[in-house]
Amino acid sequence: MKERNDTVITCGSMSSVSPIPSYSPAAPPLPTPSQFSFSVASTRWSSRPPFQAANLFLRSLTLVFSFGSALSLAAPSPAKTMFRKSPSFYNNTNLLYCFIVNILTFLYAAYQLFKGICDIAHKGVFISDAVSDYTSFIFDQLAGYLLISSTSVAVPVIQQMDHSTSLWKAATVSVCMSFAVFLIIAISALLSGYKFCKRIIW
């Protein structure tokens, strides 16, 4: 009996002394983002630089051509004669309307250009992307409508003017530049409309 107890004690001590293999849990896998969030982020960052570059280029062209159109009406070549004074654009309401529209388009293009530069430099701190998409879509449509309407009312006036006057040359250059601004604004409106639909639908 005593021998059996010694055997039991010995086995118990051996079992207590035997090392127990330590279990170390495996490191948890790194969290992977959702498939949808990854696709949206990659699409946004991959498509944003081309849109910004195209936007800056179109806004710069709009700024230059609208300024040239307004300047050609405001400072025509001084073709004065001894017996009559050269006519001015502010005596005609249609040409004055064309001048005002080009000035407004110039200010709008300057704002868009400044906003685009701030978006690249400060990553959208100046104005949020959602507000920018809404305002760009609305004001591009409005600017395009004003430009085509001012050009359409200025063309009949130019056809009725004396071709030998300096105002006729200035108005012709202004209308040509104004129509070029309309084409550029139309392309900008297509891009802003694409971004607007992408934000709402997709």
Rank of each mutant, 00 (worst) to 15 (best):
residue 185 I to V: 14
residue 151 T to C: 14
residue 160 Q to L: 10
residue 24 S to G: 02
residue 88 S to M: 15
residue 195 K to E: 07
residue 111 Y to Q: 11
residue 158 I to E: 10
residue 150 S to K: 08
residue 174 S to P: 03
residue 53 A to K: 09
residue 182 F to C: 14
residue 75 A to L: 15
residue 93 T to N: 05
residue 115 K to S: 14
residue 174 S to D: 06
residue 63 L to K: 02
residue 100 I to K: 10
residue 202 W to Q: 07
residue 134 Y to L: 15
residue 179 F to P: 00
residue 168 W to A: 15
residue 190 L to C: 14
residue 137 F to P: 00
residue 120 I to E: 04
residue 21 P to D: 06
residue 57 F to C: 15
residue 164 S to F: 03
residue 174 S to V: 09
residue 19 P to F: 08
residue 58 L to T: 09
residue 50 P to T: 04
residue 173 V to T: 12
residue 177 M to V: 06
residue 133 D to P: 00
residue 83 F to A: 10
residue 185 I to A: 11
residue 193 G to M: 10
residue 15 S to K: 07
residue 72 S to A: 15
residue 12 G to L: 04
residue 134 Y to H: 01
residue 159 Q to Y: 00
residue 202 W to R: 02
residue 79 A to G: 15
residue 176 C to D: 00
residue 28 P to T: 07
residue 32 T to M: 14
residue 8 V to W: 02
residue 103 I to K: 11
residue 19 P to N: 04
residue 127 I to Y: 00
residue 151 T to V: 15
residue 154 A to E: 01
residue 110 A to R: 02
residue 134 Y to W: 08
residue 30 L to S: 14
residue 62 T to I: 01
residue 121 A to I: 14
residue 61 L to V: 10
residue 29 P to H: 08
residue 25 P to K: 09
residue 129 D to V: 10
residue 197 C to H: 03
residue 14 M to K: 13
residue 74 A to I: 11
residue 135 T to G: 01
residue 165 T to S: 10
residue 182 F to H: 09
residue 94 N to C: 11
residue 112 Q to P: 01
residue 126 F to N: 07
residue 150 S to P: 02
residue 127 I to M: 13
residue 97 Y to I: 04
residue 6 D to Q: 14
residue 83 F to S: 12
residue 166 S to F: 05
residue 180 A to S: 12
residue 196 F to M: 15
residue 196 F to D: 07
residue 61 L to C: 13
